[in-house]
Write a protein that binds this DNA or RNA. Structure first.
Lengths: 106, 106
DNA sequence: TGGAAATATGCAAATAATCATATATATTTT
DNA sequence: AAAATATATATGATTATTTGCATATTTCCA
């Protein structure tokens, strides 16, 4: 990590409840946007906006598979911090209403 | 740490370059406000405001000694996070113009 | 006691972040 | 090729944060 300015920006990205929820979900498995929509109960555009913030911050990477875009965590520091502050006792929300191929298959 | 909302607020406090600089200094030793003023090159009222934010967030504790107030880190999670994101390669800024008893004695 | 030094607080202007809405693009299905 | 689905982007209104400045409070010392 560089100077205090960029470190502050890094923390700013984490200073958001929905982004934290998304990152916590991604720390378990890669998810498509529709999955995160169901998880967070937010409109698609909203989730997509947050994913851009996370992508621009270098915290997640995206991979397109057909119609779906799968996001995954790609930053070890973020993983470590999540573990530090959230730990493993986070609410294991099961998502019922996601119809992406990956969810339907399992 | 509790829910995502309070975790986000926790990160919000860290999402500030001057507060980060102050916390990094406190992670080495307790400092009075005048010391932090010299370090950050900000007006006294500015530093005092940031100290309130850190105090309200439960990250630092204050102890009055005569005219001076000494602040110290009092949150192990903050210490761990600072170490994670800043590490030990932070600029070791020596402060010349602080006249508090502690600084003058040494 | 009175003044100077150290620190804290209150408030307002400037700045930045959030979120809803509308719309665009790409892919699959029919 | 048109419709449907998944995702992305642009824009603007609202709200929150930052920061400078004036002033208050506390303590020390002459």
């Amino acid at each position: 990590m560089r100077d205090y300015q960029s470190t502050a920006q890094f923390f700013q990205v984490l200073a958001h409840p929905v982004r934290l929820q998304i990152l916590a979900a991604l720390s378990e498995q890669a998810c498509c946007v529709c999955h995160l929509q169901a998880l967070t109960r937010r409109p698609q555009a909203y989730v997509s906006q947050q994913m851009r913030v996370l992508r621009d911050a270098g915290m997640v990477s995206d991979e397109k598979d057909g119609q779906n875009v799968y996001y995954r965590l790609c930053n070890p520091t973020v993983e470590a911090l999540l573990h530090e502050v959230i730990g493993s006792d986070r609410p294991r929300t099961t998502i019922a209403d996601c119809n992406c191929p990956k969810c339907v298959d399992e």
